[in-house]
Design a protein around this nucleic acid. Sequence first.
DNA 1: GAATTGACTGCATGATGATGCAGTGATTTA
DNA 2: TAAATCACTGCATCATCATGCAGTCAATTC
Lengths: 208, 208
Amino acid sequence: MTIISIIEDNATLRESWKDFLNQQEEIEEVFGFESVRQAIHSTHLKESEILLLDIQLPGINGIDGIPLILKENPEIKILMVSVLDDEEHIFKALKAGAVGYMDKNVRPDDLLQSIQDILEGGSPISPLIAGKIVDFFKDQNKEDDIHLNKREKKILSLMIDGKTFAEIGKIIYLSVDGVRYHVRNIYYKLQVNNKAAAISIAIKRQLL
Amino acid sequence: MTIISIIEDNATLRESWKDFLNQQEEIEEVFGFESVRQAIHSTHLKESEILLLDIQLPGINGIDGIPLILKENPEIKILMVSVLDDEEHIFKALKAGAVGYMDKNVRPDDLLQSIQDILEGGSPISPLIAGKIVDFFKDQNKEDDIHLNKREKKILSLMIDGKTFAEIGKIIYLSVDGVRYHVRNIYYKLQVNNKAAAISIAIKRQLL
DNA sequence: GAATTGACTGCATGATGATGCAGTGATTTA
DNA sequence: TAAATCACTGCATCATCATGCAGTCAATTC
């Protein structure tokens, strides 16, 4: 038997979800709130195992609300339910500690299924939202034929650690000029002419 | 009416999925293969709109198979279905171009739902797998109280672009020594003493 | 209203980096 | 077997960076 809270400013939507969930056997009670501020100190929220949270809310928005809510109630599982489906909002919400993210086209059945997924320790993410996440990973794959050999990778990773060429030389048993030789080749391959640019490209494109 | 292929070396599992999917009205035909090698040049694969792909396969594994399959058949939607649920395999598969990822505990109904999600342009990710992805984002959130002000962030981002202090000065209308003043403060806040280390921390912790 | 703080300027010095050029010795290719 | 390539060494020079110290000026704090 589960207790659920909903923070959603659209009263019609909130009540319809509330009614639907209240009809379910495995759900004990459902509490509705209009804003983060209204919910945050409520004892009802503290009793809840799962919170359905909108982003666009009057006052504190849902994403900014996540840390506040988790601070008061560290055990609650927050499921975002928002019309906003851009990467920025999705990633911010997940980084802040939401366990799942649904777009607002969810059918009540999906919502119920998601709640069950959460109770089983899973993270429900609707296919539309998941698509954005998948795109994010796909974009990371644009390896522009940059092929560094083992030695170059080692040197580059030591550069990333902030080592000077002299220090790198000591570590890999090579003269400073030997290190410089490889660094020249690295710069050529990455099409840069200084350490800073080389490092940022290396990290951003994950060449290490 | 959709045509589907399955690459899965476990014959029992493969046939049971095949039978189940074949019974569905909206699915025209289902082809089964034991390995990537067997499937890759099959005309059946070329006809398919969706491919269910295992990772652990004899010969070429599923992840290495993705680019090979997409090269021959750029339009096919690949849905990974694997027991492997670690971040490395998930991310590699998505980066390589899979549109979704299910763990192998899927019920046939889930599989059918996932296929429908894909046909609607979504990316089905099962809650277990989504949990790993969510954890990945959560881990990125460890902001260790590093607070850079606007000017410092601007300078740091120009450093990341490989600009020298003199160039930065010109861009933000500040003397070289003015830039240096801020750089000292940045280094202090990041606890480093050179450009390279500052840049890698900035990028890795996303302080920009 | 004196003291402190923040955001600089200015200068100096030594360390580190960027780059060009010459050369060696081992391995590969023609 | 001569020629080319690779992985360096060595050196030189100038640019850039790291850091310390002294000082200005405006805004804030006491």
